[in-house]
């Protein structure tokens, strides 16, 4: 019987192959390929870096350099739900930091971290441009405006009740 890791590598291989074929013939495909791979898997596992390196040419180190440079690209798994507070200027002066403090208390993790059960990741995001609603919090890709520490707590509670993990 094949062990799990081999099975996973096979799955990754077929995903990477599909992604690469979408960008065949493209000029400068590396970043789009990484974005698409992350979209499919949730992050960019090291196995994929090696496969992409073999297909496109840049060394795994170079690819790792690209991943670490960009905020969006990640080489570690994220939570099923990603909560991001906007760190734009308007959000900052209208109470965004206080919302972040409450989120850290509730989730017991710091910015950039993921809960041990992989339920939540807590991040901040560069301005989402919905400054009229400041401060903003993104739950996955949904913008929740005019946040307060109380409202974010309520929002998380409501979600837990809706879809308990």
């Amino acid at each position: 019987m094949r062990d799990n890791s081999e099975l996973i590598t096979d799955i990754y291989r077929s995903i990477v192959r599909e992604v690469l074929s979408d960008y065949a013939g493209h000029q400068w495909p590396l970043i789009p390929v990484l974005q698409k791979t992350q979209q499919r898997i949730g992050y960019i596992p090291p196995q994929c870096v090696r496969l992409i390196s073999q297909a496109l040419g840049p060394s795994p180190v170079e690819i790792q350099g690209v991943i670490s440079f960009y905020e969006q690209l990640r080489d570690t798994p994220r939570g099923r739900t990603v909560i991001r507070t906007c760190r734009g200027t308007a959000c900052h002066v209208r109470g965004g930091p206080e919302v972040m403090i409450r989120l850290r208390d509730i989730l017991q993790i710091s910015e950039g971290e993921t809960t041990a059960d992989l339920a939540y990741s807590l991040e901040s995001v560069a301005c989402v441009g919905a400054c009229g609603l400041a401060p903003n919090v993104l739950v996955d890709d949904e913008v929740h405006g005019r946040m307060t520490p109380q409202k974010i707590e309520q929002l998380l509670q409501d979600r837990e009740e809706e879809e308990p993990w």
Binding site: T76, P77, P97, G112, T114, S124
Partner: peptide
């Protein structure tokens, strides 16, 4: 206290910053 600056995360000699899963210098 949210973006602690000076007292924030420290570089670790091994190259990886302190912090939990996914913590890296992108955070601040």
């Amino acid at each position: 206290s949210v973006r602690p600056g000076e007292q924030g995360r420290e570089f670790q000699p091994g190259g990886l910053p302190a912090g939990g899963v996914g913590a890296n210098l992108k955070g601040g």
